[in-house]
């Protein structure tokens, strides 16, 4: 399986994403620069955290219009797994691949620490290796992770089981309904504020994020490799 790690000017978790796919999963991975115009040959897309374009205007607002984003939209439409973490989540929201928007953290502070997450939907291609309602520990590192959507969108997220991760215990940023990660209706685009790629080895303080990446590979193998 081949992962594309999209790199925008200001991305800073791209190396961690690459490490998770390449070294931890042992799959193929390549960096793809934001002004590239093709994602041919890639099976999945990873949008890393960071501060693309300095977070100017709004987080993810400028990255969303990078040439590569046209290809990311096409890959999403083709049903390929797209994972956006932190700034990657913000880019997915701005691009309209996921509903809602980000506000500044309620505390107005940048928060960087491990948090507990509840897996609210383990029937996705990103979470199939977790148990339903399993609590995992993954770090967060953001100043704008206060997820917002209107009441109609929230109702639709709930109805379609699109809330995948919620903060367990304390909500660090004030997000609506403690939302930490959501998936699109088709189930192939996941955006989350916590960083699973920073929790893939006990050396890093925990490996609870690794199952997320392994779930992607499992689904891909079951769909393609087993049949072949």
């Amino acid at each position: 399986m081949k992962f594309a790690v999209i790199v925008f000017p200001g991305s800073n978790c791209d190396v961690d994403m690459y490490h998770a796919a390449k070294d931890e999963l042992g799959e193929e991975a390549e960096y793809v620069w934001h002004d590239a115009t093709s994602l041919e040959g890639f099976d999945a897309v990873l949008l890393p955290g960071g501060f693309s374009f300095g977070d100017y205007l709004r987080t993810g607002a400028i990255a969303r219009f990078s040439p590569i984003m046209n290809e990311v939209v096409k890959a999403a439409q083709a049903g390929k797994p797209i994972l956006g973490v932190c700034n990657g989540f913000q880019v997915l929201l701005e691009a309209g691949l996921l509903p809602g928007a980000m506000r500044r953290n309620e505390s107005l502070k940048f928060i960087c620490r491990p948090v507990n997450l509840a897996v609210k939907n383990n029937e996705t291609m990103f979470t199939s290796l977790y148990n339903q309602d399993e609590v995992i520990q993954v770090p967060i590192a953001h100043g704008e992770g206060n997820y917002y959507c209107d009441a109609a969108t929230l109702a639709s997220l709930k109805e379609n089981n699109q809330i995948v991760f919620t903060y367990e215990g304390t909500n660090p940023n004030g997000s609506i309904e403690d939302i930490a990660g959501i998936i699109n209706k088709d189930g192939n685009v996941l955006g989350m504020m916590p960083h699973p790629e920073r929790a893939v080895d006990s050396l890093l303080g925990g490996a609870d994020g690794l199952k997320l990446f392994k779930s992607i590979v499992k689904q891909w193998r079951e769909t393609y490799a087993v049949k072949a």
Partner: peptide
């Protein structure tokens, strides 16, 4: 399209 985010 860019200068504001109509969601918020």
């Amino acid at each position: 399209r860019l200068l504001s985010n109509p969601v918020i």
